[in-house]
Amino acid sequence: MPPVIEVRELTHSYSVGTPFEHVAIEHVNFTAEAGEFLALIGHTGSGKSTLIQHLNGLLKPNSGTVLFHGEDIWKDKKFTRTIRSKVGLVFQYPEYQLFEETAFRDIAFGPKNMGLSEAEIRQRVLRAASFVGLTDRLLEKSPFDLSGGQKRRVAIAGVIAMEPEVLILDEPTAGLDAKGRQEILSNIRAYQKAQNATIIMVSHSMEEVAELADRLIVMKNGRVDAIGTPSEIFRQAEHLRAIGLGAPQVTEVFRLLREKGLELPADTYTLAYAVKALCRFREGGGHA
């Protein structure tokens, strides 16, 4: 079976034919499987935003293809439109797109555009709201009266309500405090598990990415620099630092401990694993 998303030799330039022409991404290749959690990391300007806008057909590639279940998303106009609901894209600061009188109606915007029946729309809105933990009372409020974190969750629910097979989020936790971040991340996890959905998340927090992702895609200057599991990627902490990304703090601590001659695992990147490894090391009297 073909993967849910397959990107082949994707290249895109902006302002083609003007003096401002510049290449945003080139020769990008990767695949995403059902139920997989991918994290997209890289600097501002490394092409992450351009890449994700290709996955739901908002941008058209200059060359290369994006395949959804093996089919080119640009094969015909109708198919491209249906892709928008199958590959849901949550932009950065999505709360700035809210416009309806109530949170309920705002979440219903996507399903309504899909041409679903009233009953089906209602069901989807409620289901999406439960994924992001919005109560009925909040759904009847104006989205502009909600707190920052709640607005963000309404906006994410607006995309989840289309029940996409692939959910892409551009820095969904930017600007939130600790509690807000944890809530959003566990909402995303809940959706992934319940629908066996593919998640592609752009993030600047290596700690966040290390906890959640099955695989990481590292972008650099419009190209894919590396793809691999967190342990494969964070093993090359030196290289990550060279391209200005760095590794989670625990990975750094473990690297320093290993430099001190302690035989600890090099692929430590989450807090829970670090604690376990250290305790095992201590009980083993100096052996992991």
């Binding site: 405090d177 600790a178 625990v250 601590v253 604690v275």
Partner: peptide
């Protein structure tokens, strides 16, 4: 800090967890 919804740095979190063990 945690009760006040503030993230502690991962280094502090690591030491804190180890101390609890």
């Amino acid at each position: 800090l945690r009760a006040a919804n503030i993230d502690v740095p991962q280094t502090t979190a690591l030491l804190y967890e180890l101390k609890r063990q």
